Simulated scan of single mutants.
Amino acid sequence: MNKIITISREYGAGGHSIGKQVAQQLGIPFYDRDIVRETAKASGFDPELIETEEEDISKADSIFKSICSVSSTYYHDSQDAIHDVQRAIILRLAQEGPCVILGRCADEILRDAGVDSINVFIHADDVHRAVRVSEMTGSKNATEIQKLMAKKDSSRHTYYNRYTGKRWGDSHNYHLTLDSGALGYELCIKLIVEAAQAAQ
């Protein structure tokens, strides 16, 4: 097995947990927050800014402008600068060998660079996602949870569209699109592992 696996996911669909288990079963590295740490180290940006940039474009831009003089930077905003650094890090991680990379347009970054990867999108219905988000956040407020899910997904869609020119979640962009609510996490993990093992 010599493949990189990228996982894009709806908020609350369990993509992080599924990706981590896939990596463990295949005995390869799993990269998520490691990319944030590497980006902070390489760019000098605060990790909090990097995480904000991945979830809330407008807020990140205002933080960036408050700490940087526009005249002193080549970049229009923090998102462009951070995306460029993350792109370089993702390509370096892929060069080091098989791994699982979560989010951050890794599928398109690798495709553009001519690096083979198995690209997966994890989704689920609102009920399954809401239960998981409630567990993650501790919130029992259904309206709050729905708003949070919509906001996170909208941010991911906007980010993906901005840097790939493609529609986030469109099945044409992925090799596997899996409904974790209907299939369950274990079967999703099994299908991704089998796809990775079969791909040569």
Rank of each mutant, 00 (worst) to 15 (best):
N2L: 10
I4M: 10
I5Q: 08
T6F: 11
I7S: 13
I7E: 09
S8I: 04
Y11V: 00
A13R: 00
G14K: 12
G15H: 13
S17V: 12
S17Y: 12
G19W: 06
G19R: 00
K20F: 06
K20R: 15
K20Y: 06
V22M: 03
A23H: 09
Q25Y: 10
I28Q: 14
F30T: 00
D32N: 09
T39D: 10
A40S: 14
K41I: 01
K41Y: 05
G44T: 02
D46R: 00
E48I: 03
L49C: 01
E54P: 11
S62P: 03
I63S: 06
F64L: 03
K65W: 08
S66K: 02
I67P: 10
Y74H: 12
H76C: 11
D77E: 09
S78V: 10
S78T: 12
Q79V: 14
D84Q: 15
V85S: 06
R87S: 14
I89P: 13
I90W: 05
I90Y: 04
L91D: 11
E96S: 14
E96R: 15
G97A: 12
G97C: 07
V100Q: 09
L102K: 13
L102S: 04
A106Y: 04
E108Y: 13
I109N: 06
I109G: 07
L110I: 03
R111S: 14
D112F: 11
V115R: 08
A124D: 05
D125I: 10
D125F: 08
D125P: 15
D126W: 01
V127K: 15
V127A: 12
R129T: 09
A130R: 00
V133L: 07
V133T: 06
E135L: 05
E135S: 09
T137M: 03
G138I: 01
G138K: 04
S139I: 01
S139W: 10
K140N: 11
N141Q: 05
N141T: 04
T143F: 08
E144G: 05
I145R: 00
K147C: 02
M149I: 08
A150Q: 13
K151S: 07
D153K: 01
R156N: 03
R156S: 07
H157C: 07
H157A: 12
T158I: 03
T158V: 04
T158A: 11
Y160W: 00
R162F: 06
Y163F: 15
T164F: 01
T164M: 06
S171P: 11
S171N: 02
S171D: 07
S171C: 06
N173Q: 11
Y174R: 06
Y174F: 10
Y174M: 08
H175C: 02
H175I: 05
L176D: 04
L176V: 03
L178K: 07
D179P: 12
D179E: 09
D179Q: 03
G181M: 02
E186V: 02
L187I: 04
L187P: 12
C188R: 13
C188L: 07
I189Y: 09
L191A: 10
L191S: 11
E194S: 13
Q197W: 06
Q197M: 11
